[in-house]
Nucleic acid binder design. Sequence first.
DNA 1: TTGAAAGCGCTAACAG
DNA 2: CTGTTAGCGCTTTCAA
Lengths: 347, 347
Amino acid sequence: MNDEQTPERYPERATIRDVAAQAGVSIGTASKALNGNGRLKQETRDKVVAAADALGFRPNAMAQSLHRAKSMTVGILSTDSFGRFTFPIVEALEERLAEHGIAIFMCNATDDPAREKQHLDQLLGKRIDGLLVTARRMDMRPPIAVPGKSMPVIYVFSQAEDPDALCLIPDDYGGAVLGVQHLVDIGRQRIAHIAGPTRFEAVTLRQQGYLDTLSKAGLKPVASHTLNGQWSELWGRDAVATLFDGKAEKPDALFCDNDQIARGATDALRELGLSVPNDVAVVGFDNWDVMALAARPPLTSVDMNLRELGRVAGDRLIAMIAGERLKGVERLNCSLVVRQSSDPSQN
Amino acid sequence: MNDEQTPERYPERATIRDVAAQAGVSIGTASKALNGNGRLKQETRDKVVAAADALGFRPNAMAQSLHRAKSMTVGILSTDSFGRFTFPIVEALEERLAEHGIAIFMCNATDDPAREKQHLDQLLGKRIDGLLVTARRMDMRPPIAVPGKSMPVIYVFSQAEDPDALCLIPDDYGGAVLGVQHLVDIGRQRIAHIAGPTRFEAVTLRQQGYLDTLSKAGLKPVASHTLNGQWSELWGRDAVATLFDGKAEKPDALFCDNDQIARGATDALRELGLSVPNDVAVVGFDNWDVMALAARPPLTSVDMNLRELGRVAGDRLIAMIAGERLKGVERLNCSLVVRQSSDPSQN
DNA sequence: TTGAAAGCGCTAACAG
DNA sequence: CTGTTAGCGCTTTCAA
């Protein structure tokens, strides 16, 4: 009742100097109290803390970083723009890093080397503690030119032509094995592979997984076993038209390189009067809910566990920032989500 | 030939002090030379610049910011996680801000108020110059508690219950008018509206646009004119089943609240033996290429111009950082992309 | 035209 | 236990 009007709102910015003054202690003492360092009388500590939040004090992270030579920030640089694949990765990564108090600068270079360089310069100026590079799918990319070799760099969902770099990607080969083995397990004999464009390493890896699984099961690939096309529904429909044109032995299962292809294939089969999964079982890739759940019937699909990929990327980055030296290509497990397109008992 | 081995790689970090020493000038002079400030002899300037890039000098942005009281960073905080709608916005925003040398901290709170607060604290500690808040679609959200009222805050693709805030959202009403007017223009008489869930403000706005456009054209809405359901293909199929059950007068056009609904509707119509667009024209919303282009036929759709939204958000944020005070709700124009589902002459 | 020095906000080592 | 002080790397007066 005797104090002046105490404005509820915080002052613009209180410095630790203000806090110290308010608490009637030295600025060094205030720092210790606020950071839990040094040995201080509990009373003093409380006094300082009280002053701090009376003033709405919030330490200036830039000043702290300047001193500690750790910015507690990392950059994530997308060569291609961000999209469906990058999002879950980034999201999980952000979550993991946030737990450690690390913030993320997001940069997008959209396939433009000039913008990439500009972003990198900016990030280096901000003294990021680490860098994460992503790209559209898993195509090889030239390594980022980080001066000094000192800063941790991780390529996630992308690979660089740099033997010293750490690359994190899904295990496409293993994912294909998972999907095809499932078709073998449910008793299918004539399994075809409707694939994406051959220029993707993922596509050739998946094809290898497909072939190895068949041969291990003692099955022969159907005539033109792998058809390469686009990542689209249209391609899925076209491929089915080719496979079921009546000339060759018809497949009883399709392994598709993504869910769009699988969905197109499923639609085409239905329109041909064939039942999925009774006549033909279908397995997709990506487990993209928008496609996999909307398809009729819903698609069994290989999940690349992108959130897990992001989480692991976060862990690796933290380890590298702490001084560990990691390199090479790390391939993370895929998993299979079974739905009606291969198993009528699923709902 | 007489110099020691000159290591090509940059040293870890050269400070301006090193540059000054190397150039044989004072540290203040070096600063002036590097920033183009003050009056300096061209010779000195050159000497400093040469020294700087010989040493691979890169100014420490944190140190600069500490002095200039501008961090040249902003935060973008997603209440809900990032997704299909937020991405184009963020991408365009990032592009715009990058042109001004402003970097973006990306934070995701996934509907968790505790994480939201934690992120906000972190961002305030980093002394961001502005904050951008996004959410899933355009649902109202409680305002962010930024102490001091000093920092610019923009809600994009979301609205806050805060009359002092600036909110940027697509003009849903106008978008609906655009879509429905197009159907009127091509001569349709019985236009139905297959809508999303009523809890979204966007849905009620679009319904109003639909009704107003019909009435302006002297048309009556069909019997149960607006059907509310989910944002899914399944709902589109179900709605068509209801509308074409033979009891009531059948529509000759459908205005759908998103492309998934429109696609489901189109599929159902085809399976009913009806031709799109000859028997029934279909217009969707979102212009989401994955849906709109894969549908058979490809969908005419209302585009919310999300990239433009991001760009404008960037401009507004820059203006606000420069001191302008902006508030209120700004609704940005949608546009219409015409494809075969309403116009057979499109390819 | 250049140099010296104060200070942005904070921490940590060292005295007291 | 607490205060003093020297920086972290940079910019910007103010003198010279």
